[in-house]
Structure formats: C-alpha cells, structure tokens
Simulated assay, not measured.
Amino acid sequence: MIRKLFQKGWTKTATLEATGFNRKTISKYLKNNQLPERKETDHHKESKLETYKPYILQRVKDEMDRLH
C-alpha cells in the first residue's frame, strides 16, 4: 500500500497521514520493500475506572437481581 501511494506521487507526509506510520518507517519500507512490524508496548495503562470496578459490578449485579 505504501509503495502504491508513493508510486502515485504521494509525498511521505501524505502517506504517513494516511497509514499512521512515521516518516522514518515509510523510508525504511521504501528502501527495503518490507514493512517493519509495529512494536507492542509492554506497559498497560490502567483505566481511570479500575478503582471503581468492584462497585460498578456490584451495582450491576444488584440491579440484575432486582429485575428478576
């Protein structure tokens, strides 16, 4: 896809906006003809609601019990 866009005359900037890859990644792909794999992050960002999860689950359970 990157190569096709580049062959159509797209700039690296337009290509990065369309694909989400950065300029360096696009350059590497065009040079090596192989798309670099996306790196997975090791860190997991905790949800802001995580501290309220037990409360929310209990409320849902109580409401389900009330409806039945």
Rank of each mutant, 00 (worst) to 15 (best):
I26L: 10
E46P: 05
E46M: 09
R23K: 14
Y52K: 15
K24G: 07
I2M: 05
Y29S: 04
Q34I: 08
L67F: 05
K4Y: 03
T51S: 13
Q34Y: 02
Y29G: 00
Y55K: 13
Y55S: 14
E17C: 04
T25K: 08
E17R: 15
K53W: 07
T25A: 14
Q34W: 00
D62Y: 10
R23H: 10
H43S: 12
K39A: 09
Y29L: 07
D62M: 09
M1Y: 04
T25Y: 06
I56G: 07
Y52E: 10
K24R: 14
E37D: 12
K24P: 00
M64I: 15
L16E: 07
P36G: 02
L35W: 02
D65F: 13
P36V: 00
L30H: 05
K28N: 09
L57F: 13
L67K: 14
F6C: 11
E37P: 02
F21M: 12
Y52C: 09
H44M: 07
D62T: 12
E63V: 08
Q58K: 15
L35R: 14
W10K: 13
T11F: 08
Q7M: 09
Y29M: 07
L5F: 09
T19M: 02
I56Q: 04
T13C: 06
P54W: 02
E40V: 11
K45F: 04
K53V: 10
A18H: 15
K24D: 01
S27Q: 09
G20I: 01
S27F: 02
K39R: 15
K24F: 12
E63R: 15
L57A: 05
M1S: 11
P36L: 06
F21E: 01
E46V: 15
N32A: 10
N32T: 15
I2G: 03
E17G: 15
D65S: 11
E46F: 10
K39G: 05
R3I: 00
Q7C: 04
R3E: 00
D65P: 00
G20F: 02
D42L: 08
R23P: 00
